[in-house]
Amino acid sequence: MTTVVELEIPAAQFGLSETFERVPTFEFRIGGMIGDAPPLVWVSGADRAAVESALEDDASVEVIARLTDAGGGRWLYRLAFGQTVKLFQQLVSENAGAILEASGRDGTWSLTLLFHDREALSVAHGLFERYEFGATVTRVATMDGACGEGSPLTKTQYETVVTAYELGYFDVPRKVTLKELAAELDVSHQALSERLRRSHAALVNAELSSRMAPTEIDP
């Protein structure tokens, strides 16, 4: 049964703690952390120069590119995170999971993870404890399948996400490319990219809207 879990991790245990300390108003949001490419990160704060200076000096992250100024104190960067975050990504992907969303404020990371089943989640949770990430689970939700009441995914979307898991598309590094996955599913590269994007958006929207009933975790 597909399972979504929300958890919080202190920045001191994970990354960006120096930036949070220097810029108390600093916040960030990542739409998803899939594969090993540095993600796009929306950041905000009271002053862009202060945020950039803090990021440049923070040993847990590397600024790859400065991309967009969206106005209103929000800027888009491509950031490469350190070994702690990479280890966390690896543990998630090795247990049939994916990071749907990550954000941070007030010195704390908030992450939304998707796992193929509850057993995979339990194994990953045990590894989070073993490596002392300091993760606190705040919510767990299950989806009964594509046709189940309350599921945000269509049957096609659900089957696509499951196939992507099974073939290692969400692994770090990926075991199958988007082109190879598209061939397996007999759809075009562009159609598959759009389907995965819509699936991801549906899952995140469902979590933010609290449409899936929470359940207790059994680590």
Results as ranks from 00 to 15, higher is better:
residue 75 W to M: 05
residue 166 E to R: 14
residue 192 L to D: 01
residue 219 P to G: 01
residue 218 D to T: 15
residue 134 G to A: 10
residue 59 A to W: 08
residue 115 F to T: 03
residue 3 T to M: 08
residue 92 V to D: 04
residue 127 L to T: 07
residue 89 Q to D: 03
residue 39 P to Y: 00
residue 200 H to Q: 13
residue 143 M to Q: 07
residue 158 Y to M: 05
residue 200 H to E: 12
residue 112 T to Y: 02
residue 5 V to L: 08
residue 120 A to Q: 13
residue 70 A to Y: 11
residue 26 F to Y: 13
residue 14 F to S: 02
residue 126 G to K: 07
residue 131 Y to S: 06
residue 22 R to C: 02
residue 100 L to D: 04
residue 10 P to W: 12
residue 189 H to V: 06
residue 185 L to C: 10
residue 77 Y to H: 02
residue 155 K to T: 10
residue 127 L to N: 08
residue 195 R to K: 14
residue 132 E to A: 14
residue 210 S to H: 15
residue 216 E to P: 01
residue 150 G to P: 00
residue 49 A to V: 13
residue 208 L to F: 09
residue 181 L to P: 01
residue 44 S to M: 15
residue 172 V to H: 07
residue 49 A to T: 13
residue 193 S to N: 05
residue 200 H to S: 11
residue 196 L to H: 06
residue 166 E to Q: 13
residue 169 Y to G: 00
residue 190 Q to G: 11
residue 157 Q to D: 00
residue 205 N to S: 14
residue 145 G to K: 01
residue 215 T to N: 00
residue 119 E to I: 10
residue 102 A to K: 04
residue 195 R to F: 00
residue 197 R to Q: 11
residue 182 A to N: 12
residue 213 A to V: 12
residue 4 V to L: 03
residue 209 S to T: 07
residue 139 R to G: 09
residue 59 A to S: 11
residue 20 F to T: 06
residue 107 G to N: 10
residue 32 G to N: 11
residue 69 D to T: 12
residue 195 R to V: 03
residue 88 F to R: 05
residue 149 E to H: 11
residue 180 E to V: 06
residue 9 I to T: 11
residue 151 S to M: 02
residue 86 K to E: 14
residue 72 G to Q: 03
residue 14 F to I: 07
residue 175 K to F: 09
residue 127 L to W: 01
residue 173 P to Y: 09
residue 45 G to V: 05
residue 78 R to E: 13
residue 129 E to V: 13
residue 78 R to S: 11
residue 44 S to P: 12
residue 147 C to K: 15
residue 47 D to P: 02
residue 44 S to E: 15
residue 207 E to I: 11
